[in-house]
Write a protein that binds this DNA or RNA. Structure first.
Lengths: 105, 105
DNA sequence: GTTTAATGCAACTATTCGGTTGCAGTAATC
DNA sequence: GATTACTGCAACCGAATAGTTGCATTAAAC
């Protein structure tokens, strides 16, 4: 159960502004400047958030002329979801086992 | 797509120590004091983390004599995973749509 | 080539957060 | 009832973080 790379992903997802960015990017790829026009924070704040999101692989960037466009990587979200679900299921299995043992006493 | 209650859950999951607590609780229910014996932080630090985890519904507590035992709620993890997966799939669908439109130009 | 519009970098601030120590309260146990 | 062992609360500290402003840089557009 390697949670090594998983924890930073959740940390990245644990911020409202970053979700605002992800949702905005869901409408289509956009640059930090473009996003700044839609969200109530400065371009620089958004650039920092995008760096965090890119660091954990939730977005990727592509140069288009003089702008840097960002794209959401939905597959990475699904991957994190899959791993989380397996951990949750494992815990339920163990708890069920513990409960069964307790009831047999 | 109500992410309202979801974001704090991810914030809670974005900390290594809290994962340590969750994993330890996976071995069986335990009190903050008991967990302090297994993890490299003080009982009070663990108590704070447990409060965070309980706040977002990832653990629940039960009084047993003079101790407060905590239990992991794996189903909550799975629920969060399910919601995350749906969001990821939705984004992939949108991106595929955008890509298709772009290719048709 | 000058202008324009984007990104990159740096410094600074306020707040949050993870952690600690210390002590008060409370409920079993003997 | 005194002791023991757990929880609860509060103050404090350092580091990280979310945000800002300001300026330098770079590349397109005219």
């Amino acid at each position: 159960m390697t949670t090594s790379t998983l924890v930073p992903v959740f940390a990245a997802l644990g911020d409202e502004t970053r979700w605002g960015i992800l949702v905005a990017l869901g409408e289509g790829d956009a640059s930090a400047s473009a996003l700044a026009g839609r969200l109530p924070v400065t371009r620089q704040a958004i650039a920092k958030h995008l760096a965090v999101l890119q660091e954990v692989g939730l977005v990727e960037s592509v140069r288009v002329g003089r702008e840097l466009r960002y794209r959401v990587l939905g597959a990475q979200l699904s991957e994190a979801a899959r791993r989380l679900d397996r951990i949750g299921a494992e815990w339920d299995r163990r708890l069920a086992g513990i409960k069964r043992i307790a009831e047999e006493l």
